[in-house]
Simulated assay, not measured.
Amino acid sequence: MPHADWSSFSFDGIGTHWEISTPEALGPAVRHQLLETVSDYDTTYSRFRPDSLVSALSREPGRITLPGHAAALHDVYAALYRLSGGAMTPLIGSSLERLGYDPGYTLAPFGNPQAPPRWEDVLEWAGTALTATEPVVLDVGAAGKGQLVDLLGGVLQSTGHSEFLVDASGDMLHAGTHPVMVALEHPYDPGQAIGTVELNNSALCASASNRRAWGDGLHHVLDGTTGRPIHTTVATWTMAASALVADALATALFMLEPVRLQDEFDFSWLRVSSSGAATFSHRFEGRLFT
Rank of each mutant, 00 (worst) to 15 (best):
V197A: 03
G154V: 10
E134L: 08
P190G: 06
A108R: 15
P179I: 08
G127M: 07
G141Y: 05
T106P: 01
G127T: 13
A183W: 02
D189W: 00
D150E: 08
L156A: 05
P117N: 02
Q157A: 14
A193V: 07
D150A: 06
G191C: 03
P116Y: 02
G154K: 11
V197D: 00
H161F: 08
F164W: 02
L165C: 10
M172Y: 03
T133E: 09
A132Q: 07
P113H: 09
L130V: 06
D121S: 15
H161Q: 13
E120P: 00
I194G: 11
I194C: 12
P116W: 03
A168V: 05
L152E: 08
P190K: 06
E124N: 14
V149S: 03
V137M: 11
A142I: 03
V122R: 00
T128N: 09
V137N: 11
G146I: 06
A142E: 07
P109T: 01
V166E: 00
A168M: 06
S158G: 11
T133Q: 14
T196A: 01
T159A: 08
L107Y: 12
T159Q: 14
A168C: 15
D139P: 08
P116T: 04
V149P: 04
A142W: 05
G176R: 02
T133S: 15
N112C: 11
T177D: 13
S162M: 10
H174G: 01
S169M: 09
E198Y: 08
F110G: 14
G144Y: 00
L138K: 06
E185F: 02
H186L: 06
N112P: 12
A143M: 07
H174Q: 00
V136G: 07
H178R: 15
H178Y: 07
A126M: 11
P135D: 11
T128R: 13
G170D: 00
E185G: 05
P113T: 09
A183G: 15
Q147D: 14
V137L: 10
A115H: 04
W125D: 13
S158Q: 14
E198C: 14
A108V: 13
P190C: 01
P116A: 06
V149Q: 00
K145W: 02
T159D: 09
L148Q: 12
A126Y: 09
D121L: 08
L152S: 10
F110A: 15
M181S: 14
T106D: 11
A183Q: 11
V140S: 10
T133F: 12
V140K: 02
Q157K: 14
T177H: 11
E185S: 04
W119C: 09
G153S: 02
A183C: 10
A175L: 10
P179W: 06
G176V: 09
G195S: 04
V137Q: 12
D139Q: 09
E124Q: 13
V140M: 12
T196M: 04
A143E: 01
V180M: 05
A132V: 02
L156D: 04
A143R: 08
G144S: 05
D171T: 08
M181D: 11
